[in-house]
């Protein structure tokens, strides 16, 4: 088995609508994902730029405003398979759960990306709760 699957989640004391507005902004990922320096979006293609200088192409698969689900896949050839899924789940009027799931083949990349997604959730929570950012 070469598929790795990692899931991280975090509670955020902001409305699901506010947090979803931030998550669905495909071009703004680098503002809450530590280690990314920029994102460029053209159609369904997104290129993320890493602090190490690498550029990583992605395909945006889904932006579902009803389910509040964002899905994408990294298309760089190092991956045989990748799918990233971010779900924003309403817990109350001013609280939500954000779940960031990563499937990858090679599975090692699930662990490596998974650590980054956990850090991204921490930063998203910090910004949404402490700075009141939209």
């Amino acid at each position: 088995m070469t598929l790795g699957s990692i899931r991280h989640q975090i509670r955020i004391r902001r409305s699901a609508a506010d947090v979803w507005a931030r998550v669905r902004d495909a071009a703004g990922l680098h503002t809450w994902f530590p280690g990314l320096t920029d994102c460029q979006v053209e159609g369904s293609t997104r290129v993320i730029f890493l602090a190490s200088g690498m550029a990583m192409p992605e395909e945006i698969l889904l932006i579902d405003d009803v389910q509040r689900r964002f899905q994408y896949r990294i298309t760089a050839p190092i991956f045989r398979h990748h799918r990233g899924t971010i779900d924003v789940i309403e817990l109350g009027p001013e609280e939500c759960m954000v779940v960031y799931s990563t499937e990858a083949d090679p599975r090692t990349m699930a662990l490596t990306i998974g650590g980054g997604t956990a850090g991204a959730l921490d930063e998203l929570q910090r910004q949404m709760e402490e700075n009141g950012a939209l």
Partner: peptide
């Protein structure tokens, strides 16, 4: 961690 493509960790930066 060494495997840190986005340079999240000080050691790697």
């Amino acid at each position: 961690p060494f495997l840190d493509p986005v340079l999240r960790f000080t050691e790697n930066r």
